[in-house]
Design a protein around this nucleic acid. Structure first.
Lengths: 167, 167
DNA sequence: TTGATTTCATTAGGCTCCGAACGATATCAT
DNA sequence: ATGATATCGTTCGGAGCCTAATGAAATCAA
């Protein structure tokens, strides 16, 4: 066994990092786990934007917001921001962009003049019905090296990390 | 068994998403895996920026660039960009910021006038020796719900995903 | 050698992204 | 009732982030 297309042993970058921090009493497992989460997220994000989203004028975050609206239906602004993992001020800008694309509507809250309801449009629903299966196809491809059981294990471990972050 | 602090069963957000896409023949495992990678990456990034990096005037990407320079030493610009997962033009801006913080130097390539060598400074080395152990402490905390073996499994699965993205 | 091509980093333009400051609305105390 | 407080979304200022266009330097052709 030397090198193969499905080699999952330590990379040269990881080796160099280990050498650097060896004297500092560092948790290498925690380090590599976090580093690889970022590498994976970056790569998938870039691929999705390039191959799928750019042609619709959508950023990854814009797509995420649309996804949340598609799944949950109309949302109050602050809920939508939280569920999409962006700040309120970022959401203001994203919603502005999506509004010019006619992909969201802003509606007044019936009883509270401060609040704003963001709602998907018919165009959003059509777009997501076309776009989401393609996005899922990409998700399938990037996880194609894992069995169903391995995917479950991955999901569970990531949830554990998210729980630690909430606590 | 109802709810507990370490519950890793399906979340309400995941349930809502499953309901929405049920009719579309979607791979739910792939979907949840990718979604949780993004949730984890976003949360860790935000926490690191807020709790650790902001007080030094560093963005997460700026920290990543410093980390690469710390691990690998002086790098040519395009190598540094690739290893840090940003475009060359983004790196130009990041380096500019780091330069005003006196955390990098730009050096001319000895034989090729087009190329640029980016090098860490003494200040960088001191900073990283102080900052990195704290960053690793954060990494330890967010992965504290996982055993050493589980972390290895997580790392291996993420590498598998990265291999699929390179292919 | 000089003109064409290639390969670097930077600039230009336009979103994304954040925290802080801001105005508007609602609520709470008295 | 009315002033203090809290809670909304937006704006502001500044950095990050991308692709495409640009400019500088090296290489290749003939």
């Amino acid at each position: 066994m030397t090198e193969s297309a499905h080699d999952t042993s330590i990379t040269v970058a990881e080796k160099a990092a280990h050498k650097r921090v060896r004297a500092l009493g560092v948790d290498l497992g925690a380090m590599d786990a976090v580093a690889n989460i970022f590498r994976a997220a970056n790569s998938i994000r870039n691929k999705a934007e390039r191959d799928l989203l750019a042609r619709h004028g959508l950023s990854f975050t814009g797509f995420t917001v649309l996804w949340v609206l598609w799944v949950w239906g109309p949302q109050e602004s602050h809920q939508l921001a939280q569920e999409s993992s962006v700040s309120k001020s970022t959401l203001t800008g994203i919603v502005k962009t999506l509004h010019t694309l006619k992909l969201v509507e802003r509606k007044a809250h019936p009883s509270d003049g401060r609040r704003l309801i963001i709602a998907p449009t018919q165009k959003t629903l059509h777009l997501m019905e076309e776009l989401f299966p393609r996005f899922n196809q990409l998700e399938k491809e990037v996880t194609s090296g894992l069995t169903k059981k391995e995917k479950s294990g991955l999901i569970k471990k990531l949830r554990t990390i998210l729980h630690a972050l909430e606590g």
